[in-house]
């Protein structure tokens, strides 16, 4: 029983990380109608920036995370300007390929600059809270709390601020949004910035538990794709729900099915879902 509760808790932690990355991806998809293959690599760069801020400059954890967020926002905007904006009117296959190119570039650049070693963001909150027989490490609690706070902040930003609602407006109807005077370019840049900050936050939060390395983006991006396909591409509640479904399944699957094949589980779920419902579980219909 304790093991089950422990795994559910771990599933929540995993789900929180997935959620932050998935929200960014789904926001970008809503605006650009392109799956940003490089999104996992933004997460990776976020992890590295946090790591170097802490180890090289001795800056404290929270400040490092904020600096990483700012750096990533700039990187996200650059990515939008250099790669996605010029490809706006290209056929969708070409957009995918450009995104793949951006992904290859970022991963290779990370290898060149920082090497292929696994690094770990120094853990400062490594106390253990015991509730019954369940071990809750502080860092995992921080991950869950951080994710919840960011999700609420994103909700408030999108629903209750003027600038945030322009993102929703453009996701709903691009032409309509520009007709009422919304600057489409600015919104696209804003979306990339917000999405990159979320990815960076996910990496800063998870860095002390999971490691930081150049290929970390490739694995998470595929899992996050699974999530937004499950949740319906472009849907925000779907992304949140999908993240926790996947986090739970992986955590429980690793314990009760096979830890060797735990990464296969996510993809097997996707194949299963898409064979039964070719347009996703919660598809909004007609895309």
């Amino acid at each position: 029983m304790d093991l089950l509760i422990q795994q559910i808790f771990n599933g929540f932690t995993l789900g929180s990380i997935y959620c932050l990355v998935a929200l960014g991806l789904t926001l970008i998809y809503g605006i650009m109608q392109v799956p940003n293959f490089a999104h996992g690599h933004l997460y990776m760069v976020g992890g590295y920036v946090t790591f170097f801020m802490m180890t090289l400059y001795g800056i404290n954890y929270w400040l490092s995370a904020i600096i990483a967020g700012v750096v990533l926002a700039v990187l996200g905007i650059l990515l939008e300007r250099i790669v996605f904006n010029p490809m706006r009117n290209s056929p969708s296959t070409n957009k995918f390929i450009a995104a793949v190119g951006a992904m290859m570039f970022l991963e290779a650049a990370a290898r060149v600059l920082w090497g292929s070693d696994f690094r770990s963001i120094p853990a400062i909150y490594d106390n253990v809270v015991m509730i019954g027989g369940v071990r809750l490490t502080e860092q995992r609690l921080i991950i869950i709390a951080g994710a919840v706070i960011l999700m609420v902040a994103l909700y408030v930003f999108l629903k209750h601020t003027l600038i945030g609602s322009t993102i929703e407006a453009m996701a709903q109807n691009r032409d309509g949004a520009s007709l009422v005077g919304i600057d489409v370019n600015r919104v696209a840049m804003l979306t990339f910035a917000v999405a990159s900050i979320l990815a960076s936050a996910a990496a800063s939060l998870s860095g002390p538990i999971f490691l930081v390395y150049p290929a970390m983006g490739s694995l998470i991006i595929m899992k996050v794709f699974v999530i937004i396909v499950i949740g319906g591409m472009g849907s925000i509640p779907g992304a949140v729900l999908g993240s926790f479904i996947l986090g739970m399944t992986e955590s429980l699957g690793a314990t009760y099915i096979s830890s060797d094949y735990k990464d296969v589980i996510a993809f097997a779920i996707l194949v299963l879902i898409l064979s039964l419902r070719p347009s996703g579980l919660f598809a909004k219909g007609g895309h």
């Binding site: 250099i82 790669v83 010029p86 490809m87 290209s90 070409n94 390929i97 450009a98 793949v100 190119g101 951006a102 992904m103 290859m104 570039f105 970022l106 991963e107 290779a108 650049a109 290898r111 060149v112």
Partner: peptide
């Protein structure tokens, strides 16, 4: 060797564009 994919990644973007 290490820079190869940096060059190719950028090349891919330029080609499709």
């Amino acid at each position: 060797q290490e820079y190869r994919m940096v060059v190719f990644g950028a090349l891919l973007i330029l080609i499709v564009k």
